[in-house]
Nucleic acid binder design. Structure first.
Lengths: 240, 240
DNA sequence: ATGTAGTATTTGTCTAGTTGTATAGGACAT
DNA sequence: ATGTCCTATACAACTAGACAAATACTACAT
């Protein structure tokens, strides 16, 4: 007897294959996928199993089904440029999609060791902790936890609440421009809460970026981590 | 049977009985056995005891179970010649069996790098992707994924749909003859979907051939991979 | 050309049946 | 004591078939 029968459900492997087909551009945005019955033939499974896979993809916002018409590709995995100038709203808009954000947490705390180190502060200095979700076309793309030096950016808390983008909030605090000093990227597995926010499953692959941004004088003004749903986002590095 | 302590386990006697039933032709190859629950009732044992017997028979390659569908009597081994002239229908017919094929997928897509390289095309040029199952006496023998250059073979898509064999379809597109430039053979483990198509189990050994065919002028007209159920197919090389 | 009716196609939903897996426990031989 | 054989129960994963509902397509009358 073979040792491991079906460790991964069949429907999941179908999800992976179809998601890859879309990511590779074999099915473009807006085009119709083959009918469920045809996909069932192609994969050698019952139609219901294909439906299970498509339902999973629909929940992630990758496809959208219309009864009687077909299943259509809703969105290609988002290309997200990582470089010196990271501006979420600009990036998403450039991809022809509607950016928005939701504040999950906003409070003033004392900086811990690593935060103080990254932001060049005394340990225990007040920092504004922002946690939020970023959306593209109402689909969650990124979960971010960002720390700002409170004393260096008076009014940042109110600005973050009022303005739609972080760039706009920083500008309201007198930061005309800012650039990324460095960005580190690693792969993680989604925790339960991360999965909930990013509308993926616990244990799904996650891209985590860690970065520090400076203002034009080279003074650090932001230290944060961002988590991306790995199967829906492609980080691109290089051209900037 | 009084209270004599049976030296042979119950499950083994079930194996013997069922194996004999198959050998006697009471269950033909490809047909479904009664459900495990019914067999359990017939033998007056628990379902798990029947499963133990069926697992033993499955390991011997006598039967094959499909979750949700049933347990089926496995097909007999097939010899499959590999050489310069590979013609599935001819090969199968020569073995005294009835060939047929089923189209699983037929789409026009953009060629990826390897496909373009193999077919001597520009990357992104249109290719017809064909995926199909080949049968001998209604038993799946091979799972094929073949890529044809769309521009070089006008009408190939309709021809593949209409004609019973690939050779016939190519002839309809003006390809009188074609030969294998090279064939590579490796062993793989069956993925879930491959196993479903070939009626074997995930993780079972699979023979994979990769090949390119040229027309009489030496122009590549086909690049494809074919998967065979390793325990049911013997590839033969040499005489041609 | 245009609207309409009919047909075929496609997704949504439901019910039922089958195998795969996990857990728990009793009987029995070595 | 330990492992094998068998029973019992429950649930997950998948198949199978049928029908409803929404849409797309085609032929036809005007």
């Amino acid at each position: 007897m073979a040792k491991s029968p079906s460790r991964t459900p069949v429907w999941k492997s179908i999800t992976i294959t179809l998601t890859d087909d879309i990511a590779q551009g074999r099915y473009d945005t807006g085009t119709k996928l083959p009918a469920e019955a045809q996909l069932a033939e192609r994969f050698g499974v019952n139609r219901h199993t294909v439906r299970r896979a498509l339902a999973d993809m629909a929940q992630q916002g990758l496809v959208h089904a219309r009864r009687g018409a077909g299943v259509f590709v809703a969105a290609k995995p988002t290309d997200y440029p990582v470089g010196k100038r990271i501006r979420f709203h600009q990036n998403i808009r450039r991809a022809g999609r509607a950016p928005s954000k939701k504040v999950l947490r906003l409070e003033v705390l004392a900086a811990d060791g690593r935060e103080a180190d990254a932001l060049d502060l005394e340990p225990g200095a007040p920092v504004v902790v922002y946690e939020g979700l970023s959306y593209a076309d109402d689909h969650p793309v990124a979960l971010a936890r960002t720390v700002f030096p409170a004393d260096r950016l008076p009014g940042i808390m109110e600005a973050l609440e009022a303005h739609e983008s972080i760039t706009a909030a920083l500008k309201a605090c007198g930061v005309e421009d800012y650039t990324r000093r460095e960005t580190r990227i690693t792969a993680k597995l989604a925790t339960a809460t991360q999965a909930l926010h990013l509308r993926t499953s616990e244990g799904a692959p996650i891209l985590r970026t860690t970065g520090i941004s400076d203002d034009l004088q080279g003074v650090p003004i932001e230290f944060g981590r961002t988590w991306f749903a790995g199967d829906r986002v492609t980080l691109t590095v290089g051209d900037d």
